[in-house]
Design a binder for these strands. Structure first.
Length: 246
DNA sequence: GCGACAG
DNA sequence: ATCTTGTCGC
């Protein structure tokens, strides 16, 4: 049973201010708390999250956004953005220590929590089984799906057929960690893996259900568009402000 | 030691 | 991720 005044280990969050080595250890610890079975219930709001930034920005600002769509209508019903300076560098396998904080801040600004979140990145298909989708799922305690545009670890067991809806297993160290999904014919597949609180089959089903004929599922596509809009608005180029305005 | 390597 | 114009194919 839980002891009064003692923090519950299962709910213990952690600091984001860590060294890469410490971050890697935290991932191993959190991976064990991940739930990769089941499926989201009564989904009415599906969110997409994404982050954009300018590599040359001296302030190292990143623009994190969350866009909430209705389901099954897939219409945008809410969106929030947070721009913040980040110190943690991009290191393959440690993406969440750079992007999760601002994303969590943006989601915290929503008036209502989404029932499902599709993340631009991997979930279980990660060297320590804790991609950014899994990490966000644990912190939010909401079902999350990792939907990446390229592979981090593993190889496909077979080629993905050309037809939309075709899939192929993503194997790593003798285990199926995700699935390549052709969301549209003649385009590169996306790589789907469970983040938290749902299984691989369900994750793939939801990615397809949220598709609108484009490579990326609608929540992710809308988040990508919005993050770019925010970046361009809050980070004007050096060659303007003198011509068109006023 | 060498190659791979989400965004 | 971002830098960039036109261009090939459905």
């Amino acid at each position: 049973m839980s002891v009064p005044n003692e923090p519950d280990p299962s709910l213990a969050m952690h600091s984001w201010n860590l060294t890469p080595q410490q971050a890697s250890e935290v991932q191993k610890q959190l991976a064990a708390q991940t739930v990769r079975t089941g499926e989201p219930e009564g989904v009415q709001r599906v969110a997409g999250v994404d982050v954009s930034f300018n590599p040359r920005d001296p302030k190292a600002l990143v623009h994190a956004v969350v866009v909430v769509l209705s389901y099954p209508g897939l219409e945008v019903i809410d969106r929030q953005a947070v721009s913040a300076a980040v110190d943690f560098p991009y290191i393959p396998g440690l993406l969440s220590f750079r992007e999760a904080p601002p994303i969590l801040a943006a989601i915290g600004q929503l008036s209502q929590k989404p029932d499902l979140v599709i993340v631009d990145g991997h979930g279980y298909a990660h060297p320590r089984h804790l991609g950014i989708a899994s990490h966000l799922g644990l912190f939010l305690d909401v079902p999350t799906i990792g939907c990446a545009k390229s592979i981090l670890v593993g190889r496909l067991a077979a080629e993905v057929a050309e037809a939309a809806g075709s899939v192929a297993e993503l194997l790593w160290r003798g285990e199926v960690v995700g699935r390549a999904v052709r969301t549209r014919s003649r385009v590169q597949p996306v790589y789907v893996s469970p983040g938290h609180r749902l299984g691989l089959d369900s994750a793939v089903e939801w990615v397809l259900r949220c598709g609108r004929g484009y490579r990326l599922p609608e929540p992710t596509r809308q988040a990508h568009k919005y993050s770019n809009l925010v970046r361009q608005a809050r980070q004007p180029t050096s060659l303007n402000g003198l011509s068109g305005a006023k």
